[in-house]
């Protein structure tokens, strides 16, 4: 079991401070190694909240999150950070590359943060795999959106995480580039048997996953395709 959500609930204090907003309660989910799951849902249904909880960026109101059998809920901020560095890869909608680092440096950044000696070698291998070896010394602003996102994907995968979280990875790209990226993305994920949790409202993208779930009224529903 790579990921286990155990009766997870999250409640936000409302903006007026009186009424609390319950995003979801008692959510359960199990993800096996190599499984690819898409979570669909309307805007504001709590997709990002779910993702941030799994990424350890936010803590749940109650319940537990286990990644590779370790509970995130009981880790402090510092521990979480280093756990994330080794076990969780994240791809953002907005790419979020470090603007002042080159493509290759962006990919090797997470490895260097954990002082991996083979950072350069591993990153080179990955940048080749995403077909941007000839662009390794370019800075993000010299790259197209699609290229940036490919770098971001490589950066998420370079640490060989237990699970890959992706937040609308094609959301910021035009349709054609998005399709191309999706192709590459799933090819990569499948080739290394990566466990994936994808949050999107793009039906076509979701369909490339082995399972599709919909988050609705605080509950995860199995989609019947």
């Amino acid at each position: 079991m790579i990921l286990k959500l155990d009766r997870l609930s999250k409640t936000y204090p409302s903006s007026d401070g009186i009424k609390a907003v319950e995003v979801f309660s008692s959510l359960d989910l199990d993800l096996e190694k190599g499984e690819t799951v898409a979570v669909l849902g309307r805007s504001g249904c709590g997709k990002s909240t779910l993702l941030s909880l799994i990424a350890g960026l936010d803590s749940p109101t109650s319940g537990d999150i286990l990644v590779s059998g370790e509970s995130l809920v009981h880790m402090n901020e510092r521990k979480l950070s280093s756990f994330r560095a080794r076990n969780i890869g994240i791809v953002f909608q907005q790419f979020h590359l470090m603007p002042h680092l080159t493509a290759l440096e962006n990919i090797s950044l997470p490895l260097e943060l954990v002082h991996d000696r083979d950072a350069r070698k591993k990153s080179l291998k990955l940048i080749e795999a995403i077909g941007l070896i000839d662009r390794q010394n370019h800075f993000p602003h010299q790259l197209s959106g699609g290229e940036c996102q490919r770098i971001a994907i490589a950066r998420a995968l370079v640490i060989e995480p237990a699970i890959l979280l992706a937040d609308e990875p094609t959301g910021n790209l035009d349709e054609k580039t998005g399709d191309q990226l999706a192709l590459l993305f799933f090819e990569l994920v499948k080739s290394i048997n990566m466990t994936l949790l994808l949050v999107t409202h793009n039906q076509a993208l979701a369909e490339q996953c082995s399972r599709q779930l919909t988050l609705k009224n605080g509950e995860l529903l199995n989609d019947l395709v």
Binding site: L57, E77, S81, R84, A85, H96, M98, L113
Partner: peptide
Amino acid sequence: KKEINLLKVLGAGFND
């Protein structure tokens, strides 16, 4: 702020 957050998400230690 944004950069610091990103580094954190990528797993950079506090001290780094």
